[in-house]
Amino acid sequence: MNAKFYEIKDDKVIIYVKAQPNSSKNKIAGLYGDNLKINIKAPAVEGAANKELVKFLSKTFKIPKSDIIIKGETSKRKQIILPLNEKIKEFLKEYNEQ
């Protein structure tokens, strides 16, 4: 069993993300050790990649941008805190089965 790339606390999920800026497109690239690797088009300049990451996660999981919290903004390994909705539950279930 893989190390968990997320933790569920109450009605929130903390996902450990390795962000890969300057990618050709925004996408979830898969598991990278105990992180979820996410490719982001924006460069890691003045928070552009973090803004793009929030936008991408908001669209992917149907969550308002204001509900997405990023910890470790200047680090490549970030903690993304999201409200636990059905879309995220499905996503986590899918990844657990891999």
Rank of each mutant, 00 (worst) to 15 (best):
Q79N: 13
V17A: 02
K18S: 14
N85C: 04
F5A: 13
T60C: 02
R77Q: 14
I15R: 03
N22E: 11
E86T: 08
F61E: 03
P64N: 11
F56P: 04
T74P: 03
R77C: 09
I81D: 04
E7L: 14
E97Q: 05
A48S: 11
E86Y: 07
L92V: 07
K25T: 08
N85L: 00
L84Q: 04
K62E: 08
S24A: 01
I88E: 00
I88D: 00
I38D: 01
K27E: 15
I70G: 03
N96T: 11
K89D: 03
I38A: 01
I88L: 00
S58T: 06
N35R: 10
I38P: 00
E73S: 14
I68W: 09
P43M: 07
I70Q: 05
E86W: 06
V13K: 02
I69Y: 13
D67E: 15
K62S: 13
I40P: 01
Q79T: 07
K59S: 11
Q98M: 10
Y6T: 03
A48K: 15
L53Q: 01
I88F: 00
E46Q: 11
I15N: 08
I70M: 10
K89L: 13
D11G: 02
I68Q: 11
Q20P: 02
K12M: 01
S23A: 15
T60E: 09
E46V: 05
K93Q: 09
A49N: 06
R77E: 15
D10M: 01
L84S: 08
K9G: 04
I15Y: 04
I38W: 04
N85S: 02
S75L: 14
N39K: 09
I81Y: 01
V17M: 07
A49E: 07
K76F: 12
P21F: 08
V54Y: 01
L92H: 06
Q79C: 07
N35I: 04
M1K: 14
Y6M: 05
K87Q: 09
E97P: 01
A29T: 05
I70R: 07
I38Y: 03
K93Y: 10
K76Y: 14
K41V: 14
E97D: 00
P43F: 12
F56E: 06
L82W: 03
K76M: 14
I69N: 08
I68G: 13
V54E: 00
K59W: 00
L36C: 12
P64F: 09
I40G: 02
N35M: 12
E7F: 09
S58G: 04
D67A: 15
I8P: 00
K4C: 07
Y6D: 02
K93T: 13
T74C: 09
L57R: 10
K55V: 04
S58L: 10
V45G: 00
T60I: 01
S66Y: 08
L82K: 02
L84M: 11
P21S: 11
K27D: 07
P43T: 09
I69A: 13
P83E: 00
M1H: 13
E97A: 02
K55A: 15
I70V: 13
N22W: 08
V45Y: 06
K18E: 08
S75P: 03
E46D: 12
I70F: 10
